[in-house]
Structure formats: structure tokens, C-alpha cells
Deep mutational scan, measured.
Amino acid sequence: GLPPGWRKIHDAAGTYYWHVPSGSTQWQRPTW
């Protein structure tokens, strides 16, 4: 699974990851 606080988001551009507490997003899968 993903580290705490991360969500996987799907949209028209593809899949990305959202860090809910900080509001940051990234294309790379977050690592622990």
C-alpha cells in the first residue's frame, strides 16, 4: 500500500499521487 496520508488519483492525464496533509502531488509512486 501507500504511505500514510497518500491517495492515488485517476484523471484524464493518467494516475498520480496526492499527499493529503501537505497538498502536494507527484507522478512517482511515493515510497516509505
Rank of each mutant, 00 (worst) to 15 (best):
G1D: 14
G1M: 13
G1E: 13
L2R: 04
L2M: 06
L2D: 09
L2E: 15
P3M: 03
P3K: 01
P3R: 02
P3V: 02
P4R: 06
P4K: 06
P4Y: 06
P4A: 06
P4W: 06
P4H: 08
G5N: 04
G5T: 02
G5S: 03
G5E: 04
R7W: 08
R7K: 11
R7Y: 12
R7T: 12
R7A: 08
K8P: 06
K8E: 15
K8I: 15
K8N: 03
K8S: 08
I9N: 01
I9H: 05
I9A: 05
I9P: 01
H10F: 10
H10N: 12
D11N: 13
D11T: 15
D11P: 00
D11F: 09
A12L: 10
A12R: 10
A12H: 08
A12E: 14
A13M: 14
A13Y: 14
A13S: 14
A13G: 12
G14M: 05
G14K: 07
G14H: 06
T15V: 13
T15E: 09
T15S: 10
T15D: 12
T15I: 13
T15M: 08
T15G: 07
T15H: 08
Y16N: 02
Y16S: 01
Y16I: 08
Y16E: 03
Y16V: 07
Y17E: 00
Y17A: 00
Y17M: 00
Y17F: 07
Y17L: 02
W18Y: 15
W18N: 05
W18A: 07
W18P: 00
W18D: 02
W18G: 02
H19S: 03
V20I: 12
V20E: 14
V20F: 10
V20A: 11
P21R: 07
P21Y: 08
P21M: 07
P21I: 09
P21T: 07
P21H: 05
P21L: 09
S22R: 02
S22V: 02
S22W: 04
G23Q: 05
G23V: 00
G23D: 07
G23S: 04
G23I: 01
S24W: 15
S24N: 14
S24I: 15
S24T: 15
S24Y: 14
T25G: 09
T25H: 10
T25N: 06
T25W: 14
T25Q: 08
T25Y: 13
Q26D: 03
Q26M: 09
Q26E: 06
Q26V: 05
Q26W: 06
Q26I: 05
Q26T: 10
W27D: 08
W27Y: 13
Q28W: 13
Q28A: 11
Q28Y: 09
R29W: 08
R29T: 11
R29V: 13
R29L: 12
R29H: 10
R29F: 12
P30F: 03
P30L: 03
P30G: 05
P30D: 02
P30V: 01
P30N: 02
P30Q: 00
P30R: 00
P30I: 00
T31I: 12
T31A: 11
T31G: 11
T31N: 09
W32F: 13
W32N: 09
W32E: 09
W32L: 10
W32Q: 10
